[in-house]
Design a protein around this nucleic acid. Sequence first.
DNA 1: CTGAAAGCGCTTACAG
DNA 2: CTGAAAGCGCTTACAG
Lengths: 330, 330
Amino acid sequence: LARAVTATDVAREAGVSQATVSYVINDHPSHRIAPETRTRVLAAVERLGYTPSAAARALRRGTTNTVLLVLPDVPWGPTLATLVDALTDELEPLGLELVTRRLRPGSRQGAPWKELRPLVVVCIMDPLAPDDEAEIREAGIPVVGALLSPVTEVDSTGAAQIVVGRLQVEHLAARNHTVIGYAAPDDVRVGSFLRLRLEGVRLACLELGLDEPRVIQVPLDARRAAKAVTQWRSRPEPVTAVCAYNDEVAMAVLAGLQRLGLSAPGDLAVVGVDNIPLAALMSPPLTTIDQNEQKIAHHLARRVISAIQGDPPPARLRSDALTLVVRESA
Amino acid sequence: LARAVTATDVAREAGVSQATVSYVINDHPSHRIAPETRTRVLAAVERLGYTPSAAARALRRGTTNTVLLVLPDVPWGPTLATLVDALTDELEPLGLELVTRRLRPGSRQGAPWKELRPLVVVCIMDPLAPDDEAEIREAGIPVVGALLSPVTEVDSTGAAQIVVGRLQVEHLAARNHTVIGYAAPDDVRVGSFLRLRLEGVRLACLELGLDEPRVIQVPLDARRAAKAVTQWRSRPEPVTAVCAYNDEVAMAVLAGLQRLGLSAPGDLAVVGVDNIPLAALMSPPLTTIDQNEQKIAHHLARRVISAIQGDPPPARLRSDALTLVVRESA
DNA sequence: CTGAAAGCGCTTACAG
DNA sequence: CTGAAAGCGCTTACAG
């Protein structure tokens, strides 16, 4: 109903040209505005409650202040929510706006990068087909967090999610476990993450001369988790330690153990991933891999900035963004 | 670098005017396009990979296909993440785009509704000052989920969060508990939610003739939770049942009990809020309030649609969006 | 120091 | 059935 306030309205109110309003708003460097004029314009802006239209600005400038975050169609766990939250916070003071878009393989939702013309595309958990990525880069839009690397790369060891799996196994091997199980989630939507974490576990087992990990799906249900525990502990060569896909699945394993009158780490060692707040409250308190979302977000933000400025990317994320938290379950 | 493909490029490629491209793209009702022309245009669109610029479109139309979701600066718990996720899914098939913005009291981030010109503002957890809400409505933008009602209203009983607290107490009272404790979280950022849930608990206690609930902050730490448990159980008039702010806090209380060699519900009944996947895995399994995010999101989406069409709002959310899940802890 | 004017890429009433 | 043209609200090179 009420027409929005435009720069022209402000100009009329302040008795200047519309262009001058724009110069004041943007603090244009080559355009020195008389302090008195400036004050008058700002007063008018305040009085009318003027905010420039993002659409007009984007159209004129040919670009936005937007960072497009693309994700595959996975459920939002606490880690992802925290990461997005932290990244929003990192970008906000830089005047950058994080817009999140889920990419479903099926739905023809067009190409959000063309529609939105973001400054940078940040890509987490590998939602982009190679074609898409090439297309974005061809359009002159940098892509951060690319390739198979979900979240971000860590050192030369490889993608972060692979490192996660590796850290789990290394800890268990150091405690003399030689037959390792893997507790996979029930949810098919987490496919790409699962694949990578499991890959890390597989690689580590291989390098350390251990058997292939014995993978079982563990639903978030004590009874069915107990069944999985029983399978793992069956002879010959019972599994003595389990890497869980995440802390939730780990808790299911703990609940399964409890149901059988068993406990970690004595009957079966368990190590999770995520270090959710509840990890310390489980019984026994859960040994897990902490992904420091603040550090990861900070690093992603730095990569976004250098991509915008055309600088070379900053050093890779120090691996201390991923740390093993040793509690009692393993 | 590479200039983006525009409708003019498509027009040249197809040998028609730019206007015709636009008519084809938008399937303009009063504009019958020859099927042959139409095919040629669509082929050119496909060949060049054309996607209309959102900015130009928004500027010209004077509006966007955006629904602006404003939130206060709270941490993203699983419920919020799921709700946003579900709302995104509800809106997507309608061609509506959900853009989320956190509103911090301090930061002068301007008024996102002016900048973005959304079709509707959805407001969760009460982030909007009354002035702001009035301003948005004056601009002709409907506001959904308004006032003090976080998430949405439920029946005439009042705001959903108040109902949450009420449901907790009613269950405990039905089990003959008369002295109720309230386990508040450590995190100051959840202030408004806490206030409402606690208010619901207070009101229910009042109506049922119970004492004021005894509020203690419970950090997510077994040792300190044990201290809280000890305080609650101190004489005279020991607390026999605790409403927790959410399932995480509830788990802390359970861990505190366990540390003292006590257990729920015998020594202290515990009821949570959220019904997170882990609730069923706790020991004992947690009695809690389930907020059906799918139903809430669906209802919000319906309110968004009727707001856009100027229809009267749909019937209030049926209260079965909030249900008590009885397990063993209370 | 300030302003008139072009133009970003669309949509749509109007003319043919 | 199709197109020429205006105009959405800005930014900025250019002129004064």
